[in-house]
Design a protein around this nucleic acid. Sequence first.
DNA 1: AGGCGACAACCAACTGGTTAGTTGGTGACC
DNA 2: GGTCACCAACTAACCAGTTGGTTGTCGCCT
Lengths: 170, 170
Amino acid sequence: MVVDTPRRILDAAADEFAERGLAGARVDRIAERAGANKQRIYAYFDSKDRLFDRVVEDQIEQLLDAVPFDAVDLPGYAVRLWQFNLAHPSLVRLLLWHALERPGEQLTHAASSHARKVAALRAVRGDDDWPAERLLGQVLGLVHGITLAPGPDPEQTRADLHRAVSRLVG
Amino acid sequence: MVVDTPRRILDAAADEFAERGLAGARVDRIAERAGANKQRIYAYFDSKDRLFDRVVEDQIEQLLDAVPFDAVDLPGYAVRLWQFNLAHPSLVRLLLWHALERPGEQLTHAASSHARKVAALRAVRGDDDWPAERLLGQVLGLVHGITLAPGPDPEQTRADLHRAVSRLVG
DNA sequence: AGGCGACAACCAACTGGTTAGTTGGTGACC
DNA sequence: GGTCACCAACTAACCAGTTGGTTGTCGCCT
């Protein structure tokens, strides 16, 4: 076995949940995709619900590792985050499903990472001119919005996003 | 009967679908919420799926009617759109569900309305300086992003959004 | 007026397929 | 002997969609 079973289950579940959401996903399908047995799922993860939570945590961690924050170069960070979203559409879908199906629940990893971003931004720019919290919110909002409504030409979109964030930071 | 049955069903279904999505919604629950009978749902709308489509169309229309586009005052339009989203969170959820559960399907009303917006914008600003299509995409992206990640102070957010769009337009 | 058919609506029970989660039994490997 | 894994069948519940039977209200014709 090249990869261990829990890992294979997590990855397969990530695909299934990203495609169909929590309510639409089927445990049997996850087992099949993982090339694993259904009982293994219930042995490692207690229930469909818990599996979903674990998958979301797992994926969020992968995103945070892949796109390090850069308080000095906000336009560059925004572009890299957008590019990551573009390269991993299923991760975006998964997080949207999570936001809809688990309303009011926020992810521990994401929250602490956000706090660290705000602190880093404040250290670089200070807070008097334009509060870091709100500036970051606008930048992330722009990235998320652009991600949801992709234009036809990625290179063009990249340049547009860079320009837009530069204007916000300006 | 104050309101006719199809209307009551549409409204009840809008609530149910906004909360739970297509896969998570229950037809019996919609009937109960509507104070109507289950068979009436199947008499007026053929199936759960078709009911979902009708609900989305219906709600989209309400949004387009409520927030008229203003090519001359983009920051004002952005703020009004955001305020509508803020006042109608269930509509936002419904459209997100639709985007996730009906991937690749675009709404006729929304598409034609978008085309009209682009045309209006081009008529006011011209296209040489900064293509209307892309500018509109950025403005809408910002609004959607801010909608998804709401700040603590609405009045502050309103002012921030206005400033941000002004910068984009400038 | 009275009678008739068409429709809107209700209630309740049912069907048939689906699906989360379980169980029991088997083998392989350390 | 314990752990990891498989297979297959099972259960218990759930749920979209159906059916049959009932009531009330119209418009219309005679």
